[in-house]
Nucleic acid binder design. Structure first.
Lengths: 202, 202
DNA sequence: TTGAAAAACAAGCGCTTGCTTGGTTTTATG
DNA sequence: CATAAAACCAAGCAAGCGCTTGTTTTTCAA
């Protein structure tokens, strides 16, 4: 049952780091939430920072693993973009705490570990840039500034973790579809003049 | 010179809160950066949280004040959207530290003060929604889910604080124009087939 | 049922935290 | 130049921090 306890501690720590931040959360907060005394925590972890690293690193891996098959597929770029967006949003909505910690708290890591996460972030952003580059090369997208388009796109979809409500009316897939629609066609267009439907086949 | 010192302390605190977070920054960090002993800081402030609140509240006011004239003008909605986006980005780029603290650290405030900031955030988001609603009513924009469009839009432009480089090649206005172009027309469109230019008259 | 490993407790150590106090120096004004 | 207010320093307090230690309880295979 040792591993179950460890997972439970990671879960509670994720929740606390999400709401109070890493530095705002104490070892005693985590132990109390885990129904344990603070000293007993150290049967399962080495340091507080280990918790942050493990949560953050797992988050990074979730994003990487979910995007890889999309990038490597040979769908057309528009479909790839949609799939990538939905995949990203699903990682966030299925792992709200971990994703929030990954976005917000990774800077609290000390140098060495922060650079490990930084590398994974770079790799992830590189995968997005490949998708956009492919779309441009094949003529599916406007000629675009790749870096700028990627920054814009990722900022927009990363924001989901700040407002997503599991009990809300929009499913992750619906959110992803609407994002894709806006990104492809934009707001502009007169009344009634419906946008071409990019929402496609489920 | 009292007020000058206070402003200097606020500036140093902003920088530290930005890089290390509120809970990750100590009173001694701030006093050291201000060239003062930690006790002497209390000649100028009452508590550490006062610093956070003042920085955050000023940030909120900057956003509100810059958007108000845009909302109240009688430009057409497309132009209004562009002006609003540029205004927002200018607040960020002209006040990188304060804007970052405003986005990242306001949750560290205690209840009463957090709710003051929350109200200002709500007011700000309401102003954006008015712009979008007007665009839809006049037929400038597609029929859109207002709340969703606003969330998407604000997420995208808020991201600027995470990657903006004052020494970079893109000016705040150029960034705003590109945002506006993407938001209005999207990525989609074949090679060479240039997007209609929404970047307009400077 | 027994015995050793794993898990949890009880206590607290050394250090840092935000902040206070009492005295000294600097600054500005008549 | 006198002087009071403002700014600062030197010292340190009480509380909380991450983490360790020594001991007791729980778990579970032999």
């Amino acid at each position: 049952m040792s591993d179950g306890r460890r997972e439970q501690i990671l879960k509670k720590a994720s929740e606390l780091f999400r709401t109070k931040g890493y530095h705002g959360t104490t070892i005693r907060d985590i132990s109390e939430a885990s129904g344990i005394l603070s000293g007993s925590l150290y049967t399962h972890i080495k340091t507080k920072e280990d918790l942050l690293f493990e949560i953050t690193d797992r988050g990074a891996e979730l994003f990487l693993r979910s995007l890889r098959p999309v990038v490597e597929s040979d769908e057309d770029p528009v479909m790839k973009l949609r799939q990538a967006i939905v995949a990203h949003i699903l990682v966030i909505t299925d792992n709200l705490e971990a994703a929030t910690v990954f976005f917000h708290e990774w800077k609290a890591l000390t140098k060495k570990r922060r650079s490990i996460i930084q590398e994974k972030r770079d790799a992830y952003e590189g995968m997005w840039e490949r998708i956009l580059a492919e779309g441009e090369e094949t003529g599916s997208f406007h000629p675009i500034d790749l870096k700028f388009a990627r920054l814009f796109l990722l900022s927009a979809i990363n924001g989901v973790y700040q407002w997503y409500d599991p009990k809300g009316e929009l499913s992750p897939e619906e959110i992803g579809d609407r994002f894709t629609a806006i990104l492809l066609s934009g707001f502009a267009g007169g009344k009634g003049e419906k946008s071409s439907d990019h929402r496609s086949t489920t």
